[in-house]
Design a protein around this nucleic acid. Structure first.
Length: 265
DNA sequence: ATGGTTGTATAACAA
């Protein structure tokens, strides 16, 4: 039995979140963590803090906004920081690694601002091009997880008020349709697969008063996995504890545990 | 009401 614990966490600023993140790593000890919104330039990434905590890190940052990183307990076998796509590489939102025979694609998908804004087309394009990037290199039988802040709540049970939020970015019919079209290639929404009925969010807006206590959230962070990893999955759950601590991110980690024995390498 | 808070940055912008 070879357990492999993988997580995704939009930290909303790696420097502001460092104490909370290090505490969470000590307590949860995931083998891999995909981070989004590190919000720092490459030279400012706190690599030493992670190596002291027992993690190898790869990262892609930019000034002020966006930025992604992957922490692993052992160095990844391959790292792809440049997707070779003008949209995927236009901002620091895409970083892929291969480790333990699994390809991990970590994305911070653009939020979209509003359905009329060019940023929304950019979001849809980003989703399509990530799917195309995956399709051009891998098949549905490749052990693969597309994870990160995908910024789409796929179904009504994935937002706190589906009637009120219908048509807003993150819960717009066009992106929900695209999300499902992308899954039809051969990806499974692992949290929903493991918990078909559970109403569980991964993001609660800072701007809504007492949003955590009132559970005014969205399920925007995902693990989209191919068949081999569906079979290998033991569980997928949201760890809400970090969102309830002082100085939290507006997101909280999504965690998956796999048994990699017997996985086709 | 088109609000609210937070991070990066040090004035706004993005979410």
């Amino acid at each position: 039995m070879t357990d492999w614990k993988a997580a995704t966490f939009n930290v909303n600023g790696i420097r502001a979140r460092l104490p909370l993140l290090l505490e969470w790593l000590r307590e949860s000890r995931p083998h891999l963590v995909c981070l989004q919104e590190i919000k720092c330039q490459d030279k400012d990434f706190p690599e030493d803090a992670f190596s002291e905590a027992g993690y190898h890190a790869v990262w892609k940052g930019q000034k002020s906004f966006n930025g992604v990183a992957v922490l692993t307990t052992e160095p990844p076998d391959e790292v792809v920081g440049d997707a070779g796509d003008e949209v995927l590489d236009s901002e620091a939102r895409f970083l892929a690694v291969q480790t333990r025979g699994v390809w991990v694609i970590n994305t911070y998908v653009p939020q979209g601002r509003s359905p009329e804004d060019p940023a929304f087309s950019y979001k849809l394009d980003f989703l399509k091009r990530t799917a195309r990037w995956i399709d051009s290199r891998f098949g549905p039988d490749t052990p693969l997880v597309w994870t990160g802040d995908i910024n789409v709540a796929p179904d009504p049970e994935d937002v706190f008020d589906p009637k009120r939020l219908d048509g807003e970015v993150g819960f717009h019919p066009e992106e929900r349709r695209l999300f499902k079209e992308i899954l039809s290639w051969g990806l499974v929404d692992l949290f929903r697969h493991c918990h078909p009925e559970e109403r569980q969010f991964t993001f609660w807006d800072y701007r809504l008063p007492r949003s955590v206590q009132r559970n005014l959230g969205w399920r925007l962070d995902h693990m989209l996995v191919t068949r081999p990893l569906v079979r290998a999955a033991r569980d997928c759950f949201v760890d809400t504890a970090p969102r309830k601590k002082p100085k939290p991110s507006d997101h909280t980690p999504l965690v998956a545990v796999f048994d990699l024995d017997g996985l086709a390498g």
